[in-house]
């Protein structure tokens, strides 16, 4: 970048001696490149808008599928046999899973279009961690994972968007559960971080799972990125969970990172400033 600055201060002989035809050609190339960038940006914006629209439109048929299935499950149209009930529960849980993924795409699209806004309230981080833990109770039980929640006493209240902080913790805990084999450990910790400016709270979501190689630590926060993106990969999802988590943390003026090595589990950290950035 200093090349441009220094060139402006002290023009080089090369620039002076360029023939007009060469200058004209370079200018034409620059103009073409600028137009191409503008075109790509416009297409990217269209793609983002398409993602937002399609995500919203997918909710309507999903609503019909889930509501009809819940009507059957609740016996409103008559009793079901245990096997029929099992089938209906499968439809509901598949439908709700799909709905969550559609929701993630919508959140991502809004974030990419800078349409995510914070709705700040004052809340206790403890309540959020306990809420997210409770929501994941059945998954934890299913995989026989032990969950430890450690929250420093007398943590100050957070001025932030409670729902979005819960979304971040939910995405991180969901990954921790997904990537930790049965019988493993998962933990949530929250503490005050006094050496951070501004004064912040630190949340850790850790697991004793498969871990992440260091060369992938940046990749995993990029949109649609999965360390193993092959169709046969063992872990499925939109690949947007960490991108969304990063976006939501940054909206609060915090930062997010991972400490991990292959085979040693993972520790994801994020900060929530106590004085909100504008």
């Amino acid at each position: 970048m200093s090349r441009v600055d220094s060139a402006a201060q002290a023009p080089t002989p090369l620039e002076i001696t360029l023939p007009d035809s060469r200058v004209a050609m370079l200018e034409a190339q620059l103009k073409a490149a600028s137009m191409e960038i503008a075109e790509l940006r416009a297409r990217d914006a269209l793609k983002t808008q398409f993602l937002a629209n399609i995500s919203h439109d997918l909710r309507t048929p999903l609503t019909a599928v889930i509501t009809h299935a819940e009507i059957l499950r609740d016996g409103i149209l008559g009793d079901l046999t245990p096997r029929q009930m099992e089938g209906i529960r499968g439809i509901i849980s598949g439908g709700r899973q799909l709905l969550n993924q559609v929701g993630e795409i919508l959140t991502y699209a809004r974030g990419a279009a800078n349409q995510l806004t914070l709705v700040p309230t004052r809340f206790a981080l403890r309540d959020v961690l306990e809420q997210v833990s409770a929501l994941n109770e059945s998954l934890l039980k299913k995989k026989r994972l032990g969950l430890i929640v450690e929250i420093e006493a007398e943590l100050p209240l957070v001025d932030g968007d409670r729902e979005k902080i819960a979304h971040v913790v939910g995405n991180l805990l969901g990954n921790a559960i997904d990537f930790t084999p049965a019988g493993g450990r998962v933990w949530l910790r929250a503490a005050r971080l006094r050496d951070e400016s501004p004064d912040s709270l630190l949340v850790e979501v850790g697991d004793s799972g498969c871990g992440i190689a260091e060369e992938h630590h940046d990749l995993i926060f990029r949109e649609f990125a999965q360390v193993d993106a092959s169709p046969s990969r063992p872990h499925h999802g939109t690949g947007l969970g960490l991108t969304i988590a990063r976006k939501l943390v940054e909206l609060h003026g915090g930062r997010i990172w991972v400490e991990s090595q292959l085979g040693t589990g993972s520790r994801f950290f994020f900060t929530v400033p106590l004085t909100q950035a504008d």
Binding site: T60, T63, H68, I71
Partner: peptide, 16 residues
């Protein structure tokens, strides 16, 4: 305006 959704709501609310 979506018939699939309104039919589900009809069954549900008529049950009450």
């Amino acid at each position: 305006d979506n018939e699939l959704v309104s039919s589900a709501l009809r069954i549900l609310l008529e049950s009450a």
